[in-house]
């Protein structure tokens, strides 16, 4: 079976210093993968390269064995690191989620049918009661669920999540993982970054240990060894 995504010899850096070097990765349709590594290990950079936000210095990406292009690419749902978000921005929960389908209307406001779709997914995520709330009125975990709802509202082929549980408490983290697993069962391919070994990485079917290069990949039960962790965190 051909690969959903293939990353071949990807190298990229900032100010002439490589952040990731010669990364090769094959992703099958419907896989759920965690990128594990310390700060500066290249997790977010790799996610942004896959998302098409930055072009690698060298190497290529293929989608079903053909070069990634405007005519040959998966639909993407994306969740940024929420630490970068301005929580005082005047925006409600439903407006944040509606940005996921902003193209559906040319009007400057979100029409009723769009808001209807937004309410459906907010119900699924137990956030419907907060639809009209300002985003800074929610807890950290709820805020991350709002961004997850935005990423999932179009039922994309590929879900890219940058630290999706970083602000979540135990309950919210478990809830987010359950949501991800249920979408993954419907064959949504998921790639996420995480720092959290116990809370997240150990619960994923596949992880990739990254420290500028891929150190190990596979089932966390087999690759979260002392040697790999020393190489990962020093």
């Amino acid at each position: 079976m051909s690969n959903f995504l293939s990353l071949k010899n990807i190298t990229y850096g900032y100010s002439h210093t490589p952040v990731i070097t010669d990364v090769n990765l094959e992703v099958k349709k419907g896989e759920m993968i965690g990128l594990l590594g310390r700060n500066g290990s290249g997790k977010t950079t790799l996610l942004k390269i896959i998302a098409g936000l930055i072009k690698p210095w060298s190497g290529s990406i293929e989608f079903y064995d053909k070069p990634l292009s405007n005519n040959n690419k998966p639909t993407i749902g994306y969740m940024p690191q929420v630490e970068k978000i301005d929580w005082d921005f005047p925006i409600t929960v439903e407006e944040v989620v509606a940005f996921g389908i902003w193209k559906d209307s040319i009007f400057p406001w979100f029409k009723k049918d769009i808001i209807g779709k937004v309410h459906l997914i907010l119900r699924e995520f137990n956030l419907y009661n907060y639809s009209k709330s300002h985003i800074n009125e929610l807890s950290g975990g709820e805020q991350q669920k709002v961004f997850l709802a935005r990423a999932l509202i179009t039922h994309p082929d590929l879900l890219l999540l940058d630290e999706p549980t970083s602000r979540a408490d135990y309950n919210s983290r478990e809830e987010i993982l359950e949501i991800l697993k249920s979408f993954n069962k419907e064959m949504t391919t998921i790639i996420l970054t995480t720092h959290d070994i116990k809370g997240v990485a150990e619960k994923l079917p596949k992880i990739i240990c990254l420290n500028k290069q891929i150190i190990a990949e596979g089932d966390p039960k087999h690759i979260l060894t002392l040697n790999n962790l020393i190489e990962l965190y020093g």
Binding site: K48, A51, G52, L53, I76, Y78, M79, P80, K84, I85, D86, F89, I91, V96, F99, G100, W102, K103, I106, P108, W109, F110, R150
Partner: peptide, 24 residues
């Protein structure tokens, strides 16, 4: 401009990275 670009402007200001991925 403000009528037709309102959503694109707001999305760009609020979360530029994601706005790019969502086709803006």
């Amino acid at each position: 401009f403000f009528f037709f670009f309102n959503k694109a402007m707001l999305f760009t200001i609020f979360d530029k990275e994601s706005a790019k991925i969502y086709g803006i």
